[in-house]
C-alpha cells in the first residue's frame, strides 16, 4: 500500500517537474558495440574527461554510468543543448561465465563477473522508462538483424522515445553501414568511429535534430 502511494506521489511530482529536468540521453545496444567508447568521446569532446573504461571483452560496463551536464553547441546557429549522458551495460539474452574464462579469468572471478553482467542488463532495461532520447550503438562489422537489436529498438518505439542509430566502428574494414540502414529504414543512422572520432560532427548534427 505504502509502495503504491509512493509510486503515485512520485508519478504526480515527476510529471509536474518533468519539463524542468535535464534531458536524459541514453546509450543503449548489445555488448561490445562501443557505447562506452562513444560516451568517452562525447565527454572528452565537450568536458575534456572520460566516463569509463573500455575493453575488448564483452560486458566491461556492468553498471549504469552517468555523466551530468554535457552541453553541446551547434556551430551553425550557436544553439546549445545540455543533457545527462547515461551509459548503460550492453543488453543480451544470454550470459555464460565460461566466456570470461577465455580472457584468463579464474572460475570464481568469471562467475562473479557473469552475475554482475546479468544485473547490469536488468538495470539497463529498468532504466529504459527514464530516458528522454536514446542513441542505439551498433557495431557496424556485425550482422544487425539480431532479436536483441529489434527488441531494444521496438521497446523504445513502444515508449515513444526518439531514437538515433549509430553504426560504430566505421574505421574497420568489415564495417557495413548500409546493412544497418537497410535493417532499420525507419530510423536515422549515422556511421562513426567513436574510437578515432571519425564523423562526430555528423553525429552531433543528427543529435541536435533528434532532441529539438
Amino acid at each position: 500500500m505504502i509502495k503504491l502511494f509512493r509510486k503515485w506521489l512520485s508519478g504526480l511530482f515527476g510529471k509536474a517537474f518533468k519539463g524542468k529536468n535535464r534531458i536524459k540521453l541514453g546509450l543503449y545496444g548489445p555488448p561490445n558495440g562501443g557505447k562506452t567508447t562513444l560516451a568517452n568521446r562525447v565527454s572528452l569532446d565537450w568536458l575534456g574527461e572520460e566516463v569509463g573504461s573500455v575493453s575488448e571483452m564483452a560486458h566491461e560496463t556492468r553498471e549504469i554510468k552517468i555523466k551530468e551536464s554535457i552541453t553541446i553547441k551547434n556551430e551553425e546557429d550557436g544553439a546549445e543543448i545540455t543533457f545527462n549522458l547515461v551509459d548503460t551495460p550492453g543488453i543480451a539474452t544470454k550470459i555464460d561465465y565460461e566466456d570470461f574464462l577465455k580472457y584468463g579469468m579464474k572460475e570464481k572471478e568469471a562467475k562473479e563477473r557473469a552475475k554482475e553482467a546479468t544485473k547490469g542488463i536488468i538495470d539497463s532495461i529498468k532504466w529504459l522508462d527514464d530516458m528522454d532520447v536514446v542513441v542505439v550503438v551498433l557495431d557496424s562489422t556485425v550482422d544487425p538483424y539480431s532479436q536483441v537489436n529489434i527488441t531494444i529498438i521496438g521497446n523504445l518505439a513502444a515508449r515513444d522515445i526518439p531514437v538515433l542509430i549509430v553504426a560504430n566502428k566505421s574505421d574497420l574494414k568489415k564495417s557495413n553501414i548500409k546493412k544497418i540502414e537497410d535493417a532499420f529504414p525507419q530510423y536515422e543512422v549515422v556511421g562513426i568511429s567513436a574510437k578515432l572520432g571519425k564523423n562526430m560532427d555528423a553525429f552531433y548534427k543528427k543529435l541536435f535534430k533528434l532532441i529539438k
Binding site: T118, K126, Q147, T151, N155, A157, A158
Partner: peptide, 16 residues
Amino acid sequence: RKQEEAELIQKTMESI
C-alpha cells in the same frame, strides 16, 4: 508484445 520482450530478457537474466 514489445515491452514483454524486454521483460522476458529481464526474467531470463534473473534466472541465469
